[in-house]
């Protein structure tokens, strides 16, 4: 079994023709699989025996009436945990940020404006930019497997949503674009802000409210600046926050979005920012949004 990724940052490996490094047995999958099976068998045996003993002790004697409780079950019914967003404020390098973490929700893209009244949507943020000249979406864009826009722009950052999982990256060409088309997924392009924990500088220098889609500690998080920031300061703040990958989302005070938090009584309450973009010239306004599971 080859394990070419089995290396730490503090190690080197000479690449020569030899058997690939072998993991110690306790780092091999079969060791843990066997351990789990053995543990499961042990649990079944122990509980089986004790259950049998208890059953023997509780077996009604002739003439006694046994009470049997039964709970109606519905094996086909799947109940999902309610979806909501956890928002939290922080500041990094004097850049005030708000983090929005969707919980029990799946991401997708949409073109057009989402309705804040739709309680299944727990977070919606404008995703890809719109070209000023023809009002088309800038860069490649795939909506549920359908190619909406291809190429254009110089934005190497991308977000692919395949099977409900978001993958962020920085690349001129990526197979994930084709995969999104083949598998009914989603794809859009944006400025990259952070790659492998390193901040990426972008040309636009102006200051405005910024937003980003980030991979932070293995979770997908939307981060918004609460003040006007330059690309540089915003990206640096994200990198210093510990973000692994981040791409830009549509910012400025005009960008619209909303999120739904849990209230004290267990229901959810929505809050929004910016203003809705309506009219024919905004027909391609688009969002990344997280919805409760069906």
């Amino acid at each position: 079994m080859m394990h070419f990724d089995d290396i730490s940052d503090n190690e080197i490996r000479i690449i020569n023709r030899q058997e690939a490094p072998r993991r110690p047995f306790y780092r091999r999958w079969w060791f843990w699989a066997a351990a789990v099976v053995i543990a499961a068998v042990a649990v079944v045996v122990i509980f089986g025996l004790s259950g049998k003993a208890r059953q023997t002790a509780e077996t009604p004697q002739p003439g006694e009436v046994s009470e049997v409780e039964s709970t109606p079950t519905s094996p086909t019914e799947v109940v999902h945990e309610p979806a909501y967003v956890i928002s939290s404020d922080t500041a990094v390098n004097d850049v005030p940020l708000t983090l929005y973490t969707p919980v029990n929700a799946v991401p997708e893209l949409m073109i057009g404006n989402p309705s804040e009244k739709d309680e299944s949507i727990v977070l919606a943020v404008q995703a890809a930019d719109i070209r000023a000249d023809n009002r088309e979406i800038l860069g490649s864009y795939v909506l549920k497997g359908e190619l909406v826009s291809r190429g254009g722009g110089k934005k190497d950052g991308f977000c692919a949503i395949l099977g409900g999982d978001i993958q962020l990256g920085v690349a001129e060409n990526t197979d994930l674009f084709e995969k999104a088309i083949e598998t009914g997924g989603y794809f859009f392009r944006q400025y990259p802000l952070v790659s492998e924990g390193i901040m990426i500088d972008n040309k636009p220098k102006g200051k405005t409210l910024r937003a980003a889609l980030c991979e932070l500690d293995g979770r997908m998080v939307v981060v918004r600046s609460r003040d006007d920031e330059s690309f540089h300061d915003f990206a640096q703040a994200l990198a210093d926050l510990g973000v692994n990958f981040a791409i830009n989302l549509v910012g400025s005070s005009h960008a619209y979005g909303f999120y739904r938090e849990k209230s004290d009584d267990g229901s959810t309450v929505s809050s929004s920012w910016g203003k809705l973009h309506t009219g024919a010239k905004n027909s391609n306004v688009n969002y990344i949004m997280w919805k409760a599971r069906d």
């Binding site: 070419f4 290396i7 940052d9």
Partner: peptide, 17 residues
Amino acid sequence: NKQLQESDREFIRIGKS
């Protein structure tokens, strides 16, 4: 490891990256 001749193989992996 698979493709290059040994004489051409002066590559070294440094950490994860």
